[in-house]
Amino acid sequence: MSRWRQLTGEKTGQDYAERFAALARSGKDMHGEARFCAALVPEGARVLDAGCGTGRVMIRLAQLGYDCVGVDLDASMLAVARERAPELPWHQADLAEFEADRLGLAADFGLVVAAGNVLPLLAPGTEAEVVRRLASVLRPGGLFVAGFGLDEAHLPVPPGLTLPEYDDHCAAAGLTLVDRFATWDADPYDNGGYAVTVHRR
């Protein structure tokens, strides 16, 4: 069972959406992840939002002109995403069993993004398989971007995935490290408790 399912029971979509709506109303910038991704690939590129949740990142990328697809396990989160942007393709799937062709998707994405602690909230022991499956849908030269917490201050669950482990999973999946940052604003990584990492296939 995924750590996300244990944490939420997969019934928190509306609550999750409201929390971010409240942050937006307070004036907080809610589009850092989308802006970061948009700086990496040209407008019109195919983007897979892996663990898309309520669609906050993907909807913004679609508004910026990207060809987006969202995948998430949590039906309550996807219900919010579909309500907000019914014209966009949202798919329910476990990333540990994700197969693009079974969803009718071509495996030629220019970018795969996993934001919002997707990787640390997977079922323990599936991290390498998820990275392998997501890497496999990238076109040659495509980018894999993941941002996640590494300590208790940045995670809602006990830390379980280290950066060396993650880099090993990526290397095994045929990905090469490009860069690593401390935030979605591309601040230099300082060995802190959160990292945004870019790999290339």
Rank of each mutant, 00 (worst) to 15 (best):
E99N: 12
E99M: 09
A100H: 03
A100L: 02
D101Y: 10
D101M: 05
R102C: 12
R102S: 15
L103M: 12
G104T: 09
L105V: 07
L105F: 10
A107D: 07
F109Y: 15
F109M: 13
G110L: 11
G110Q: 13
G110R: 13
G110M: 09
L111R: 09
L111M: 12
L111G: 11
V113N: 03
V113G: 00
V113F: 09
A114K: 01
A114D: 00
A114P: 00
G116C: 10
G116L: 08
N117T: 03
V118N: 09
V118E: 08
L119C: 10
P120A: 06
P120H: 03
L121Y: 08
L122Q: 14
P124F: 09
E127I: 11
E129M: 07
E129I: 10
E129W: 00
V131T: 12
V131N: 07
V131E: 05
R132G: 14
R133Y: 06
R133P: 04
R133Q: 05
S136E: 07
S136H: 08
V137H: 10
R139F: 04
P140C: 12
P140I: 13
G141Q: 03
G142C: 01
V145L: 12
V145K: 03
V145Y: 02
A146L: 07
G147V: 04
F148L: 06
G149Q: 01
L150H: 01
L150G: 02
L150K: 08
D151I: 05
A153C: 00
A153F: 00
H154P: 00
L155M: 06
P156C: 04
V157M: 05
